[in-house]
Design a protein around this nucleic acid. Structure first.
Lengths: 346, 346
DNA sequence: TTGTAGGCGTTATCAG
DNA sequence: CTGATAACGCCTACAA
């Protein structure tokens, strides 16, 4: 009945089409594709030819339905537009690809509700494991992950107080170290430009690290002039200008990331302020632009690539039944460059 | 028989679990999820409660198998690590999300064979439509796309000679315009730093545009000193150093993209060469660093975000049956900044 | 408004 | 080595 010469152009070829065209059963075709050695050389050739002719590709849905591992991992990042994620993810994807798994990426625009959606979407599409960024997400997301027992790993963050599977670095500690450096250079009036801290534990951790440093040197965190803004070079510039209008004017502006810091540096120059002679500026992440801008940014170097690579390995292990994942803290090291100097003599 | 209280923690809840827990049939549960208005208020509440309790999520594979639209689009880019794709893709994804479709991204590492794999992977996973970068890909990829009638759109490239559905800009024309500017400033000895042109029609188009410009001013493209290198700031610097060791030494170095150009500028400064007084350098793409580096890069501005947004709309239309997609050429405009100047007087 | 039943494409189990 | 055939989880007529 369904012996048609070739499938109508509107329908996708199925296993059955391949089978009838090569005169074997669907079971045999399936074997050809999955365990070629369990099929005779001759029939295999015939089947493969039919596969090519028909442009057959297995239906993934059916395949996973029939109960096989998908070899697909998912990753959900806040935004593709942030170089730190792009870099780490590229390494992550390369490592996975080397192990035969396909990576699917989705982005949440920093919205926990969207992230929850994406988690479900990826899992529903058969993701064997998930890479997530940071600790902040809806309780529903965590509940879902637990109930479905999805191997997952949190990257870009490490919180000693949390007992989660993660591979990241201690944002708070790293920022504290940097801030200590700033304070010990004599700065007392400090400004802080940060991304939104709500729903972003990395940003919050950095803020807390700064407060820690101030307290440990007898400064009151309350005296910190804060500007919270969205991601973007221009945004950093605007926030910087606001800070410079304050009295007393900060002698150092600590930024939550390099992008904001670069905006601050550029704006300073437009305002005729010399960096660091008139005002010091620091970044965080050590992405390319940190070194390109002049003066180059004093910042915190984060091993994005290594993080991606190791996250891939850990997730692969977990998927292979290695049990509970690791909780690894990578080193984020201080990078001294020119944008930070001693407080100007009044 | 399968009347277990609650599903063992090792198995995922299915429609049936939800059904039995809420005392209705699977059909009703399905309706609750897909067309809630066709179900009584009361039963719906009961069902939804069960859904939540069980942490139920529909199995996507089964769903597409049963023949529904997936509301999932796919995109395959060469690498996440290149800001130009990241920016366009973010816009693409936001537009799609606003229309209720999930975007899944995969990357090919600039390898056509990997891209072919990814195309199959995404289609198999039920992608309703695909966004691809550039025209260069294996014939098998095109054959597959045609046979399966997958709505797809090519972005970041526009070739007037090709009759394909695409939304991009004319790399060749844009580079020609930029190169004309260089030549008309008096430069006769020109260097060119480019990404690998094999399998990358955008890079090739830019190269050809440069040749066009030279020819149209009576210069021999053969005299062009070319360095082909991989992506990365450092790579651009190395290629630049090689070019500067040539005799005669180029007075202008045209770069295939901003990243390479920034590397060249930085290296020039390390070598004690003033830009543009001693040597001119140009970029392409107009990403953030083009403006951050000093001197700022003379480059070609590409409307990445708009491209992403419009690609999303076009693909949405195609998926909705709007027939053959568009072939749109966006404007890429010359951005004059400081890195390009007249040829030095000998 | 709700339930029943058939089928979607693949894999796996069992016989031949 | 190969062929039937029963799941897999969901959707959608069709019936009630």
């Amino acid at each position: 009945m369904t012996e048609g010469q070739s499938p109508p152009d509107t329908a996708l070829p199925t296993l059955e089409d391949v089978a009838s065209r090569s005169g074997v059963s669907t079971a045999t075709v399936s074997r050809c594709l999955n365990s070629p050695d369990r099929v005779s050389e001759e029939t295999r050739k015939r089947v493969m030819a039919a596969v090519r002719d028909l442009g057959y590709a297995p239906n993934f849905g059916a395949r996973t339905l029939a109960g096989k591992r998908t070899n697909t991992f998912g990753a959900i990042i806040p935004t593709m537009e942030n170089a730190i994620f792009a870099r780490g993810l590229q390494a992550f994807q390369e490592e996975l690809h080397a192990h035969g798994v396909t990576l699917l990426v989705a982005s949440s625009s920093y919205k926990p509700s969207v992230e929850e959606e994406q988690i479900r979407a990826l899992v529903a599409r058969g993701a064997d494991a998930l890479l997530l960024i940071g600790h902040d997400r809806t309780p529903e997301s965590y509940a879902f992950l637990a109930k479905r027992q999805i191997p997952h790993l949190i990257a870009w963050a490490y919180d000693p107080a949390l007992d989660r599977m993660s591979i990241g670095f201690d944002n708070r500690q790293a920022m504290k170290a940097l801030a200590l450096e700033v304070i010990d250079l004599g700065h007392r009036t400090i400004g802080f430009i940060t991304a939104a801290r709500d729903g972003n534990d990395r940003a919050r951790g950095r803020y807390e690290g700064l407060c820690d440093a101030m307290r440990s040197r007898g400064l009151d965190p309350e005296s910190l002039a804060i500007r919270e803004t969205t991601y973007g070079i221009a945004r950093g510039g605007e926030a910087f200008a606001e800070l410079m209008a304050l009295t007393p004017r900060p002698t150092a502006v600590v930024c939550g990331n390099d992008v904001l810091a670069v905006g601050a540096v550029k704006r300073a120059q437009q305002m005729g302020l010399r960096v660091p002679q008139d005002v010091s500026i620091t970044g965080f992440d050590d992405i390319d632009i940190a070194e390109i801008v002049s003066p180059a940014l004093t910042t915190v170097h984060v091993p994005h690539r290594e993080m991606g690579r190791r996250a891939a390995r850990a997730l692969l292990d977990m998927r292979n039944g290695a049990g509970r994942g690791p909780n690894i803290c990578l080193d984020a090291t201080l990078k001294r460059r020119e944008s930070l100097g001693p407080v100007p003599v009044a």
